[in-house]
């Protein structure tokens, strides 16, 4: 009886039929879909928890262990040999600050000029250099230490703070270059062209317009690079050697905070390990302050611009 009607199938009927099938599938699979969604989302939350736990644990533990080591002597005295009480990390602070300042003084101008070059050129040379800078970021820090050893220590009279600054600078350089390029590329082309139209020279534009406008990004990049450089241990082990005594002269072997932590922590003397924790806390606080500071500073500069 239905055979007569069957061949004439209106599209609306097909649509309705399919709608029924789809809605049936949708409602019958709803429980399963909601369940798997809930489980997967729950797993994400659990992973967030897993990620937070060790990180917070490190912060709390280092603070708890390091804080008792902090006293006036800790910040003003040099390291004492094992067994002799007292002593501090003054020599390591001097070394770390001096090495970092030297590295910053050389790499910031160099990196910024290079960043300007990258931001203004699009040719094959720029592409190659950009690739090089990226690969440099990926060079293992111990390899940079080896390079510092070969290039400076072997050729220029032995271990020295300068060799350390060279290695740390090498690590900071690509970070500053790429951060500089990114920040400079963010400067609106119209600003650039407006200045050009006024007849300004490119160097003047760079100094007066481009770099100031890109400053928040540049400063963030530099501070992040410094934060990274401060914590590097391996390259310093191969270049500055370490020094128990206060040394201001950067052409001589120096102490630095990461080296002190590394060396002291493997000693069997409790007071030396205690000093290591104190130094770890100090290093961590400085790095965290730099990171937070750069963030806040960049945010404030950006707000003022608006």
């Amino acid at each position: 009886m239905t055979i007569v009607e069957a061949p004439v199938e209106l599209p609306v009927d097909a649509t309705t039929e399919r709608r029924r099938a789809i809605q049936a599938a949708a409602s019958s699979s709803l429980r399963r879909r909601k369940l798997s969604s809930g489980i997967a989302i729950g797993v994400c939350w659990a992973f967030l928890g897993i990620a937070i736990i060790p990180l917070v644990a490190v912060l709390i533990y280092v603070t708890a262990k390091g804080l008792p080591a902090w006293n006036v002597d800790f910040f003003t005295q040099s390291t004492t040999p094992e067994g002799i009480p007292g002593g501090g990390v003054w020599n390591a602070i001097v070394g770390t600050v001096e090495i970092t300042l030297i590295a910053v003084a050389v790499t910031v101008p160099l990196g910024l000029l290079c960043g300007l070059f990258l931001a203004e050129s699009n040719g094959r040379i720029a592409a190659t250099l950009r690739f090089t800078a990226d690969v440099m970021t990926g060079v293992p820090s111990i390899t940079v230490g080896i390079f510092g050893y070969i290039a400076i220590v072997k050729n220029f009279g032995g271990y020295s703070g300068l060799a350390g600054a060279f290695a740390i600078g090498f690590i900071m350089l690509p970070v500053i270059t790429r951060a500089g390029e990114t920040a400079i590329r963010g400067v609106p082309q119209s600003l650039n062209e407006a200045a050009l139209a006024l007849g300004a020279r490119r160097a003047t534009i760079a100094r007066r317009v481009v770099v100031p406008t890109a400053l928040p990004g540049i400063i963030t990049g530099v501070l992040l690079a410094v934060a990274r450089g401060l914590g590097e241990t391996a390259p310093l082990l191969l270049t500055i050697f370490g020094n128990q005594y206060l040394q201001w002269n950067p052409t001589k072997p120096m102490e630095a905070l990461p080296i002190l932590i590394y060396n002291n922590s493997s000693q069997p003397y409790a007071d030396l390990v205690q000093v290591a924790w104190g130094a770890a806390l100090l290093l961590m606080v400085v790095v965290l302050v730099l990171s937070i500071g750069s963030r806040l500073f960049a945010a404030r500069l950006q707000k003022e611009r608006r």
């Binding site: 097909a14 649509t15 599938a25 709803l30 399963r32």
Partner: peptide
Amino acid sequence: LKFNGVRKKSLLDEAAES
């Protein structure tokens, strides 16, 4: 359709074409 749990290939193809 896939978001809504439709897995039958024939239904997917038909719906896509339509």
